[in-house]
Design a protein around this nucleic acid. Structure first.
Lengths: 193, 193
DNA sequence: CCTACTTTTTAACATATGTAAAAGGAATCC
DNA sequence: GGATTCCTTTTACATATGTTAAAAAGTAGG
């Protein structure tokens, strides 16, 4: 095990102080994963048993709705990505994770992680905090989707992630915003006027 | 303390087995609250420090968006309600909780609850599970909002909560669905044809 | 460099939902 | 029980977004 998981431990420690024993326990269930652009990190139909940390690159969670490809979310550097609706229910996910730029991930094996909760309450606490924060983000996103126009959401997105336009195809941004490519094009044309 | 919190303990035990000591610790930070119809259980601007369990009645979380009253969610009997974006951040909430039918709640004081996490890991685990499940629901709700029409969401709602139509004003259902009363009326008229 | 493929834009038309105003119903209060 | 207020529906019109198709622009491979 020569891999360097310190980036991840550092990320975790900003949320929850971890004893050396906890840190080692976490590292022991991590693995490094490199995936080239346009490949799937996790396929549709697969039950999610790994939480990924993005060291480098971009990934997206996507699924098919009536035959069209929908992006549920993006994950950029220094963030976690997982299909929680499968992770927490144990059911196969209707969603996949695709890599949009050659990417380096750290994978955390979730059944092993959940086993650590008994021996290391601070690890359970860490992930409680992580998912509480993700939950709050998701509640706020509902407000954003439901009560802002697609145009407002587009401008919010490029404000919060200015480089995303250069890094992911517009069609994925359109489906992420809940609109068609055509609508997004119109919005962009309008903004350029 | 003559109050009966056994409904709540029973609700919790379906998710996580609790020792008698944990049960007593939880009961010690609970209180019974009765609120009449149309009153606020928690006001807008107040920092959320109580998680409520609905024993009887209906409540909704609401806020104002450009002056119009928006319902974020409903809570019926045998469910928990809290403004998580305030609960987990400690910031004042822009949302309030209003009672739509005379209601009986059990309030759980959240700072006291979070203090229990150190002494009772199984209580921390219980609430981790509760909020993980709520998180999954919220992720699924985004899919529902973004990729189903208002009409589909209306029919989904009355399928999953058939009695809600009789119990809450349509205007709240409309804003919950992300549409105007007028649109909801149109959808209902269409269905009756 | 040329071809093929993918992505993005543009155009024309259809539809769902929003806005505003008015009217009909239902509940509440004195 | 009449008046008032709130809730719901209806109408007419405006607008945003969807759908389909085609053109244009950009990208990748031989």
């Amino acid at each position: 095990m020569t891999e360097d998981f310190s980036t991840l431990i550092h990320y975790f420690e900003r949320l929850q102080k971890l004893s050396p024993a906890s840190q080692e326990a976490i590292k022991a269930i991590c693995s490094a994963v490199h995936i080239p652009k346009n490949q799937d990190l996790q396929a549709i139909g697969h039950t999610c048993k790994t939480i990924y940390f993005v060291k480098k690159g971009i990934a997206r969670i996507y699924y098919y709705k009536d035959g069209t490809d929908i992006t549920e979310s993006f994950a950029l550097e220094n963030s976690l990505i997982a299909r929680v609706e499968s992770l927490f229910t144990g059911k196969p996910s209707k969603k996949g994770i695709q890599v949009l730029e050659d990417a380096d991930f750290i994978g955390i094996h979730s059944p092993a992680l959940f086993d650590l909760y008994d021996a290391f309450p601070e690890i359970e606490r860490l992930f409680r905090k992580i998912f509480e924060a993700a939950y709050v983000d998701t509640v706020n996103r509902i407000e954003s989707i439901q009560f802002h126009t697609a145009e407002e959401r587009y401008h919010d997105l490029i404000t919060s992630s200015p480089d995303i336009l250069q890094r992911v195809p517009l069609k994925h941004i359109a489906s992420y915003l809940g609109i068609t490519q055509v609508s997004l094009s119109r919005i962009r044309a309008k903004g350029a006027r």
